[in-house]
Design a protein around this nucleic acid. Structure first.
Lengths: 259, 259
DNA sequence: AACGGTGTTTCGACATGTGGAACACTTGGG
DNA sequence: CCCAAGTGTTCCACATGTCGAAACACCGTT
């Protein structure tokens, strides 16, 4: 929420953070007046803040186009993100168990605001395999791993999400009808896991189970990425569902004990 | 450089960035007074800045220990980092070529301040393989991929680095004698690539070649991670050296054309 | 040459940030 | 149980930093 959006006066640190947050997402480069227009800050303010961010390498400026981009200093945080996150520390062994027993790629995803982001993965050992890199993100309505997070969120969050989110297709299989999405979310909640086929990537199936903390709050989704040809094999799918939901349950219990 | 270190008065945005930068590196959690002591800020100032960072999820606070950790919002930047970096965009095809022709894991590394950080990787297709995740970092004196970056830096940077850097061992194979390191760096510069064995990870060899921009400035190192048993095979090593240096040269030329 | 943009700089006006001190709380030792 | 030694958090008088309209310099296009 920016000064422009909610008219609340922002401190200079808040302004700097708002500017930084513009460097994630689809638009990868910005000019001074573009940022100023987008955020409701004057060009002089944007300029001054960007100079500070630049001196610390939180942004960099292309000398030719003079546009600003995300800075390389963010690379420094990747290792720490991984090491300091107890979800990845505790979850690794359950992920190893799942991928060993299903021979499919396994991911760990979290909810970051209104996005799903992959924070860990172990690739399948098979020749035909699916998967995505750490850091991969999507809206909460596209794909099983995302919808799983949404389905097991509390009702307040879900209501707010449905109200404010514009459902844009990611592929032609993405559900974009609000009533249909709500029905799907309710179904996921009921059966305890999510399945999708081609909602984010054509030819790719996804199976996802929720991971909770000791209070029953959704923390993550544990997911399998399964090529279409294998997710259509009923026996394989049944086996995967059983192994994944079992591991997610054990993961949830382990989080509770680690509290 | 902090207020404490160089006595220059910092603006509040600079203070916030200094605090954020403490959340990368070996120490993953901080208390208010720890940070204040480390940075020379009063506890009230640290508290106030951390509350802002917390509200934007740049940090999070463990409710039990009350310690502060890096926040999940940094996950949002991973994808953008990758997409906006022309080194990874241009370099991918050369990396694919190298790994196809050597059948070893290939990495792309950059210099980030006084660190080497891996920003892209393609794993070997072999059963016995070596490698590290994106975001992996090390000092510039440990391992071929890091030493390669150091060796081909300008003399001013090298002199400053040797002056201020304390050489602590990463493994028992890490070179920690300053004179020996300088000799090694000079040798790498002369032969045009770097080789190391077990300086960061026991049993793992590394081979690295420099990538330059159109001005001849070092931009990255292209590296192979090779298990010890294979790096000791002279024919395989010769082949790898030839393929890697050739690809790095083509990569450098491609960067120049993309200017 | 003129126009319509850009990034950058200036500086008087004004708003915000600072940090010493105190508070509330926790932990551990005697 | 008491005390010491920490922690995180809050307060507020005071100090100083930030703001943004306007202008400048530059670039690309017509």
């Amino acid at each position: 929420m920016t000064q422009k959006q909610n008219q609340k006066k922002l401190t200079s640190i808040e302004k700097a953070l708002e500017i930084m947050l513009k460097f994630q997402g689809k638009k990868i480069s910005w000019g001074i007046r573009e940022l100023g227009g987008e955020l409701g800050f004057s060009p002089a303010t944007v300029q001054r803040i960007l100079q500070v961010l630049k001196s610390y390498e939180f942004v960099r400026q292309d000398p030719n186009t003079r546009q600003y981009f995300i800075g390389n200093v963010f690379y420094r945080f990747i290792e720490t993100l991984h090491h300091s996150n107890r979800l990845t520390a505790i979850g690794r062994k359950f992920m190893e168990e799942v991928t060993a027993n299903t021979r499919e790629t396994v991911h760990l995803n979290i909810m970051e605001g209104d996005l799903r982001i992959c924070i860990d993965s172990i690739e399948s050992s098979q020749v035909l395999k699916a998967g995505m890199p750490i850091g991969n993100q999507s809206p909460l309505y596209a794909g099983a791993s995302a919808k799983c997070l949404l389905a097991f969120s509390n009702d307040e969050y879900k209501n707010e999400y449905f109200k404010k989110t514009k459902l844009l297709p990611v592929t032609e299989n993405t559900i974009v009808d609000p009533a249909q999405l709500k029905t799907e979310i309710k179904k996921i909640k009921g059966q305890g896991y999510a399945i999708s086929l081609g909602e984010r990537t054509p030819g790719l199936g996804s199976l996802s189970a929720p991971v909770f903390d000791y209070k029953g709050m959704i923390q993550a989704s544990l997911s399998l990425a399964i090529p279409e040809i294998r997710i259509k094999q009923k026996d394989h799918l049944s086996t995967c569902i059983q192994i994944l939901t079992s591991a997610a349950n054990k993961f949830s219990k382990a989080l509770g004990l680690a509290h």
